[in-house]
Simulated scan of single mutants.
Amino acid sequence: MSIIVGTNDPTLSDHLKAFIQTSDALIVGIIGEGSSRELTSLWESPFENDTPGSMFSKAAGLVQAGALEGLGVEGGRTSKGTLNTTQVWSGTTPHTFNLVLELYAISDAYNQVQAAFIELEKAAAPELNGVTPGGRIPQEVALNAGRQIIYPECVITNVSRQLDGPISRDGYPLRGSVTLQLQTMTTVNQSDIPGTFG
């Protein structure tokens, strides 16, 4: 059974909290300002340089520049058409979450702040062997943001936390924020998106 760390403040609605489940712990934090969900589709113009004039680019350039007007060739013309600007889909990146988690101690600075920082960094780090191959890659995590966004298979690609802030007598932070970037393991199909909203 995994431990629960972070700020699971009972006075706040679960809709304001993010829950990140790792193999070792359930990390709970308050969703901070600037948190976002991002989906990027990749489009490109593969025909941009494929024109009848591309084989004779210097001649096409001379025509466009009007250098051949003395020979009866009208300037200001191009060999490009709207087909050259057609966008072609080349893929969609996995969903990306830029998540700001606010943590603060209600009664236990270690478990409610420090341990959450530790568990998040553990989830983003590998466990490599000293000499031989075969170590463990960073683990997958499950994300539940505000009981509204649910993804069972994500990876943490970045963890950044503040080092300043108030400290307890034991030397643990009393509050702090951590900024995470998470990505789904795969691109999510259109038909699957409604199911990611709780």
Score class of each variant (00 low, 15 high):
4 I>H: 01
8 N>C: 09
9 D>Q: 08
10 P>L: 07
10 P>H: 01
11 T>Y: 00
11 T>S: 15
13 S>D: 14
15 H>N: 08
15 H>L: 09
15 H>P: 00
23 S>W: 00
26 L>C: 07
28 V>I: 14
29 G>S: 09
29 G>F: 05
30 I>S: 04
30 I>H: 05
31 I>K: 08
32 G>S: 08
33 E>C: 08
33 E>Q: 13
34 G>P: 14
36 S>H: 02
37 R>H: 02
38 E>R: 15
39 L>Y: 01
46 P>W: 00
47 F>I: 04
48 E>H: 07
51 T>Q: 12
51 T>R: 15
55 M>A: 13
55 M>F: 03
58 K>C: 05
60 A>K: 13
61 G>D: 13
61 G>V: 01
62 L>W: 00
65 A>G: 15
66 G>N: 06
70 G>D: 07
70 G>R: 02
81 G>N: 07
84 N>P: 01
86 T>Y: 00
88 V>W: 04
89 W>A: 10
92 T>S: 11
96 T>N: 03
96 T>S: 11
96 T>M: 08
97 F>M: 14
99 L>K: 10
100 V>Q: 13
101 L>I: 09
105 A>T: 03
105 A>K: 03
105 A>F: 06
106 I>W: 00
107 S>I: 04
108 D>R: 15
108 D>Q: 14
110 Y>V: 00
111 N>E: 05
112 Q>F: 07
114 Q>E: 14
116 A>D: 02
117 F>R: 13
118 I>R: 13
119 E>R: 15
120 L>H: 03
121 E>F: 01
123 A>Q: 08
123 A>N: 11
124 A>Y: 01
125 A>R: 13
126 P>R: 10
128 L>E: 12
130 G>N: 11
130 G>F: 06
130 G>I: 03
135 G>C: 07
136 R>M: 02
138 P>K: 08
138 P>C: 02
140 E>F: 06
141 V>E: 06
145 A>G: 09
146 G>W: 03
149 I>A: 12
150 I>P: 09
150 I>K: 09
152 P>K: 08
152 P>S: 14
154 C>A: 11
159 V>W: 00
161 R>P: 02
162 Q>S: 14
162 Q>M: 07
162 Q>N: 14
164 D>K: 12
170 D>L: 12
170 D>I: 04
172 Y>W: 13
173 P>R: 12
173 P>M: 02
176 G>E: 06
176 G>M: 05
180 L>M: 12
180 L>S: 05
180 L>H: 06
184 T>A: 11
185 M>I: 10
185 M>G: 08
187 T>K: 07
188 V>Q: 07
192 D>M: 13
193 I>Q: 10
193 I>T: 11
194 P>E: 02
195 G>Q: 11
197 F>L: 15
198 G>S: 12
